[in-house]
Write a protein that binds this DNA or RNA. Structure first.
Length: 983
DNA sequence: GTGGTCTCCTA
DNA sequence: GTAGGAGACCACA
């Protein structure tokens, strides 16, 4: 480097944080990867480099480098351990951008400089000095005041966001001192963001005034006694040493032993292919175009880069090795063979997981578990040490141990924590001595009182800068909420696993631990025993409980370290961020609210059902000629098809007579009396045992309401499931069954509102398969099954026979289910040949549907998964099975999953937005239940009219803005005192 | 007591 | 033909 050269030094790390907060959030269109800061960074580089070729602009670079922080562990920590100790974890949607910005730097063919143990600022200071000594000009691209001490006549700064040059006069104007006194000024004022102490009570104005008067810090400290203001004098004398340490901290190191010399920074020509490959991968279309124009490269001939998206040191602390992944541009041989979307580059994407994931997998498998190392916290002082540790690290995994799997009933027995792999603790709270009398024995000694534990934990668990991690967070959230704690922000390893691997097996902690960490954790059963001899967790000895619970927290933390980076690497972070994580508190509140169920109505119905069933029972014994067990399909089949010799009997796969309702109905239609009676008896006993007898047992003793439990990670498609009790299968089909719904009621003065999507799955099908007739029919609001019938059979929609419409309806459902001639024939009770003919006719009329089904199958075969319109994946690892039946089953499931799953995603989006929408409209409606395409609310009677339009609006627009559907969504909503009338 | 099978309730 | 949960029966331990 020589006189006349001009070195540009970009403060990359500073830029990331500033851009993140200053620029509007932006995500990659195809998958929601957050890229706002990356976009700002690329635009800035583009602008700086474009001007480099523009000779009319004076300040053009000849040399260029982008400088990054390497890790949070630097020599300043040795001087002052608290330095930057207050820094919180970066926001979740910033983390993947650290790595991306390094890759952007490489894509622009610029040196990417970082160095272990030093901050970016020290490298910048060193390079600026070297360049200035060589006679060159330097421009530092940053507006950070920490760098202003470097400004000289030859070194200036440039604020790229405000497009403002910062020279000596600008520093004086802003801070009241010249650049060379900035160090002393900062030593006096300190810096709260970096935890530099300074002197209390002295801000920039006072500091500038003092330096003006005394000249420099040393003189000031030496003559502090001369200061007139008493308080200020005392402060300066008392904190003089603190100011000296602060000066050491803010002084940038100009002699960093840099490994890369200035000669390496000479500006190289742009590598158009590499730059375009990166910009295309980011989906920065405007910039891609401009880059193509400027470099003369045909953008369509370059494949989007297959990026390794990594979180780096700023996000995870000093223990993680950092390397920004590099890539080589790939030219497309026949551009037409590649789909225009960014997903075209996926083939290798799934086959080469990010190095970070690889290294973390290796790390996880190599790690050992040592249960004896876990700490038992039995006093407040120790508890506070762990809380402080978590506050500092910004991350904590926890697990709650209770005496019941029902979070609405459970008492907390203990809480375990983990702050890093292998470092875990257990707080016993309510352990009881097991050998007590019938009352169960007293509280074990030396446990911190429950109230004290929660009071201490509350500030940590509610701190925005500390990420709380649990496996199955909804349970923990509910437990904490019952203790007045609003848990946030949070991560759930079960849901991360679910988003990554739905369809690839269990997401239980034990299974994931075995699969990913190669370790079988202590079994719960081993601890509490089984059957009669089992005990509740509060009877487990604290020593054993600590090992078990500590391990759970430890495992959770390790799984998080391993799985979380895969979200970005697999580019489905937005599914987790928008469809899973925000739903945790929403569902938890729904469960907590419960729904009112009228015990009297159910009890009366039980009596009615029992009476009718008993009468039928007598008839059956007479018809059968013996008192067999009607509830036993085995015995019933022997009577019907053996003893009585009825025709049409088929065997199940275990060789027993099949006695399904459908078969019995057919026999009944032929005039056989017994099958009819059996069907009626089964219906009544089913309603009685599953609903009217079982539901009252779920009424909570305190709330007097029924609280179901929703599973977020139970289905392969993205649907929720409901259990204990399952409120997603309350009868509706028959008049008898519907009576059960009248027992689900609103509180006095309130109404239930039921709002359900009309034909949402067929609408999704019309959208994804792009079927013009379907899209048009939905736009026009026509009866979709009648339209289908009309297209297929040539019958006019007006005065269509019910049977014709019924068949079309069955076919429409069949399509959604991945139709087969066998299944359709079964459904319609017609010959398989006839069903096959229907399907052929359907495909002739709607060829787009066959194309959709074929391409979905092909996609699933190639990648092993399919995707919803929001990017959720459902995996079908066995779709390549050599067993034709098995394979066909997987194909049908793969065809169904994008449709069912997209509908599930839509209602999830509606649910995530619903509470704030109601709140904004100042409405008090509470969301209680979800039944796949229906939401149930309870609200004050007076607000019903105002509430329905708000609910409808949120639901009908739930896909926007992520996806603009080609068909409108329609929601029907009604209010009534009970669920039957509201539906 | 546990687990598999059959049946039936929902979207 | 898709996705679930649950009760009853029954063979096995």
């Amino acid at each position: 480097m020589k006189k006349g050269d001009h070195l540009f030094l970009v403060d990359g790390s500073g830029y990331i944080f500033r851009a993140y907060h200053a620029l509007p959030p932006l995500t990659r269109k195809s998958d929601g990867l957050p890229v706002g800061a990356v976009a700002g960074f690329c635009n800035m580089l583009w602008k700086l480099l474009r001007e480099a070729r523009d000779t009319s602009v004076r300040d053009t670079p000849t040399h260029f480098a982008v400088i990054f922080d390497y890790s949070s562990h630097t020599f300043r920590k040795e001087i002052y351990p608290e330095y930057k100790a207050n820094r919180s974890a970066p926001p979740e949607d910033l983390i993947p951008q650290f790595g991306l910005i390094r890759q952007a730097t490489k894509a622009f063919n610029l040196p990417c400089i970082e160095m272990n143990g030093y901050e970016a600022d020290d490298l910048i200071a060193t390079y600026a000095r070297m360049a200035e000594e060589a006679g060159a000009e330097v421009t530092i691209i940053s507006s950070d005041k920490d760098l202003m001490q470097l400004v000289t006549p030859n070194v200036s700064m440039y604020d790229s966001m405000k497009d403002k040059q910062i020279g000596i006069p600008d520093v004086v104007e802003k801070w009241g001192v010249p650049p060379e006194k900035m160090i002393d000024l900062q030593a006096l004022t300190g810096d709260s963001t970096d935890n530099v102490p300074g002197i209390p009570g002295i801000g920039p104005k006072t500091a500038a005034q003092l330096l003006e008067e005394f000249g420099d810090l040393d003189t000031l400290l030496a003559r502090a006694g001369d200061i007139k203001q008493q308080k200020r004098r005392e402060n300066i004398i008392e904190h003089a040493e603190q100011a000296r340490i602060s000066r050491q901290l803010v002084t940038l190191k100009k002699d960093t032993p840099v490994e890369v010399g200035l000669e390496e920074f000479g500006l190289e020509p742009q590598d158009g292919k590499k730059l375009i490959a990166f910009l295309k991968a980011m989906e920065f279309n405007a910039l891609t175009r401009r880059a193509a124009e400027a470099t003369g490269v045909d953008a369509s001939s370059i494949a989007p880069a297959q990026l390794k998206i990594e979180a780096v040191a700023e996000a995870h602390g000093p223990d993680l090795d950092v390397e920004a992944g590099d890539f080589e541009p790939v030219e497309i041989k026949s551009p037409s063979a590649v789909s225009p979307t960014a997903r075209s580059g996926m083939e290798n994407f799934t086959a080469t997981p990010a190095d970070l994931v690889k290294s973390r997998t290796d790390e996880a498998l190599a790690a050992r578990f040592d249960r004896s190392a876990y700490v038992t916290i039995r006093d407040v002082a120790t508890l506070q040490v762990w809380i402080d540790e978590a506050m500092t690290s910004g991350i904590i995994a926890f697990d709650t141990e209770t005496n019941s799997p029902d979070p609405m009933q459970a008492d907390v027995v203990g809480i375990s924590l983990a702050t890093r792999p292998g470092r875990a603790a257990y707080i016993p709270i309510n352990h009881k001595s097991g050998d007590g009398d019938l009352l169960g024995g007293g509280l074990v000694e030396r446990q911190i009182p429950e109230q004290e534990v929660f009071a201490r934990l509350k500030p940590l668990l509610e701190d925005r800068s500390v990420l709380k991690i649990a496996h199955g967070m909804k349970y923990g959230w509910l437990i904490m909420h019952r203790h007045g704690i609003d848990l946030h922000p949070l991560d759930d390893t079960m849901l991360i696993s679910y988003v990554l691997d739905a369809g690839e097996g269990s997401h239980s902690m034990d299974a994931l631990c075995d699969r990913w960490l190669g370790h079988k954790p202590m079994a719960y059963k081993e601890l509490i025993g089984s059957g009669k001899s089992s005990v509740t967790f509060d009877k487990v000895p604290i020593e054993r409980a600590a090992e078990y619970a500590g391990e759970d927290a430890d495992v959770t933390l390790r799984l998080w370290r391993l799985l979380k980076p895969r979200l970005a690497a697999d580019s489905i972070a937005s599914v987790y961020e928008r469809l899973e994580r925000p739903l945790i508190p929403v569902l938890a509140r729904m469960e907590e609210r419960g729904i009112s169920v009228d015990r009297q109505i159910l009890s009366r119905l039980s009596g009615d059902f029992a009476q009718t069933a008993a009468a039928i029972e007598d008839d059956i014994y007479k018809l059968a000629g013996e008192r067999i067990n009607i509830g036993s399909p085995k015995q019933m089949g022997d009577i019907l098809f053996g003893k009585m010799g009825l025709p049409g009997g088929t065997k199940t796969k275990t060789g027993q007579w099949s006695t399904t309702a459908q078969l019995l109905e057919e026999l009944a239609a032929e005039g056989h009396e017994l099958p009819r009676k059996i069907v009626d008896w089964r219906q009544l006993t089913k309603l009685k045992s599953t609903y009217t007898d079982a539901l009252p047992g779920y009424i909570h003793p305190r709330t007097r309401r029924v609280h179901t439990s929703y599973a977020l990670a139970a289905t392969s498609t993205g649907r929720l499931s409901s259990s204990e009790p399952n409120l997603q299968n309350i009868p509706v089909r028959t008049a008898e069954g519907r009576k059960i719904r009248t027992a689900f009621i609103a509180e006095p003065g309130n109404k239930l509102i039921s709002a359900d999507y009309s034909q949402i799955e067929l609408r999704v099908l019309a959208h994804v398969a792009e079927i013009p007739q379907l899209t048009q029919a939905f736009a026009d609001g026509i009866d979709i099954h009648a339209m289908t019938a009309s297209e297929m059979f040539g019958v006019p929609v007006k005065d269509m026979p019910a049977e014709v419409r019924r068949r079309a309806k069955a076919i429409n459902f069949g399509i959604i289910y991945g139709i087969s001639a066998f299944g359709l024939a079964n459904q319609l009770s017609i010959p398989r040949e006839e069903a096959g003919q229907y399907i052929r006719t359907y495909f002739e009329r709607f060829p787009g549907i066959r194309d959709y089904m074929e391409s979905t199958k092909a996609f699933a075969r190639q990648y092993g998964y399919v995707e919803t319109i929001f990017g959720r994946r459902a995996h079908y690892p066995e779709i390549r099975s050599s067993n034709p039946q098995h394979r066909a089953f997987n194909e049908r499931a793969a065809i169904n999953a994008p449709i069912q799953g997209s509908a599930a995603d839509i209602i999830r989006r509606a649910m995530v937005r619903m509470e704030s929408a109601l709140e904004e409209a100042k409405l008090s409606a509470r969301m209680l239940l979800q039944v796949h395409d229906e939401l149930i609310f309870e609200t004050a009677e007076a607000e019903v009219e105002a509430t329905i339009p708000v609910i409808r609006d949120v639901m009908e627009n739930a896909a926007m803005p992520a996806v603009s559907l080609s068909v409108p969504l329609k929601v029907d909503a009604r209010a009534a005192h009970n669920w039957d009338e509201a539906h």
